[in-house]
């Protein structure tokens, strides 16, 4: 069984990708070479930017089954319309019109059950791409990328997670920001969740919502405060009141920000920076051994 760590955050821009890519490097170097990084932020997958020598080794189209209506069999009874929870089906009996909007369809299959006339056929509809990369160290990067125009994030994330299942002894997931379905899907089966926040009012506001979600899902978690030194102490007060573990504080540093924007994994080049990630790993291992 793999040990699954998911990096999440409420607010976007707190440093999920920074933590995920640096932690990947540190895990591979200091803990287990058999570690896989999985980018679940399918709307904006950017982990790849940090691996300049990445070599594409697999590419699979991710599809979703969307029904089509065969109008020569359809009796325009509108039963499928009644069953569709997502208003994806339009049937106008007086003009004999029937069609399904793929962008609204959730592939739940209710319409197939509803149709008594055998007028619906499921067809594969492309919603994204799953790519595997060798990055020169560790098990590599598995990335989900949503097709432009598609809104079906969760099926792409599910597909990528299925591929990652037991693919390495440690699997590190980089989740999307926020607290919606895509985040739930990403953290669902995590053995440990790292929540990245920043010490600002915005960071705190969204962290609270994210903590509520992770607690509701009953998952073990700890918080990394990134860009420490900025903002105020409100995040610290909140974490203390709630009895939430601070895994590590990573100070804000303009030089770090500059190197990050150039696509560098800082722990590879800066020993002082790497220490933060070694501490995070140590804390997670302590938890694992409990």
């Amino acid at each position: 069984m793999s040990f699954k760590i998911t990096v999440a955050s409420g607010k976007g821009g707190t440093g999920k990708t920074t933590v995920a890519t640096n932690l990947y490097w540190s895990l591979v170097k200091n803990f287990d070479n058999d570690t896989l990084l999985v980018d679940c932020d399918v709307e904006e997958p950017d982990d790849l930017l940090f691996f300049k020598n990445a070599i594409l080794r697999s590419e699979v189209k991710v599809t979703q089954a969307v029904p089509e209506i065969n109008t020569s069999k359809c009796t325009y009874c509108r039963k499928c319309v009644e069953y569709c929870e997502y208003n994806a089906i339009t049937v106008i009996p007086p003009v004999q019109y029937a069609s399904i909007a793929p962008d609204l369809c959730h592939s739940c299959g209710a319409c197939l059950y509803a149709c008594q006339d055998d007028a619906l056929i499921e067809k594969d509809h492309e919603i994204g791409l799953m790519s595997g990369y060798d990055v020169g160290f560790g098990k590599g990067l598995l990335e989900g990328r949503l097709k432009i125009g598609s809104a079906a994030q969760t099926p792409v994330i599910r597909r990528v997670k299925k591929e990652a299942l037991d693919a390495a002894s440690v699997i590190l997931f980089d989740a999307p920001p926020g607290t919606s379905c895509s985040v739930v899907t990403s953290v669902l089966d995590a053995d440990f969740v790292i929540m990245v926040t920043e010490p600002t009012p915005f960071g705190l506001h969204d962290l609270k919502i994210a903590v509520e979600l992770i607690r509701e899902m009953d998952l073990p978690f700890g918080v990394v405060i990134n860009k420490a030194g900025l903002g105020d102490r409100a995040v610290y007060d909140y974490l203390e009141d709630e009895g939430i573990d601070i895994l590590e504080e990573i100070p804000f540093n303009e030089e770090y920000a500059r190197k990050f924007s150039e696509g560098m994994i800082l722990s590879r080049i800066d020993k002082n920076y790497a220490i933060h990630y070694q501490k995070i790993i140590r804390k997670i291992l302590e938890f694992k051994q409990q």
Partner: peptide
């Protein structure tokens, strides 16, 4: 309606002839 309000409204218009 949570989604596709325009489509459903257009349906009504078409049905009304």
């Amino acid at each position: 309606q949570s989604s596709a309000a325009g489509t459903t409204a257009a349906e009504t218009v078409i049905e009304q002839g």
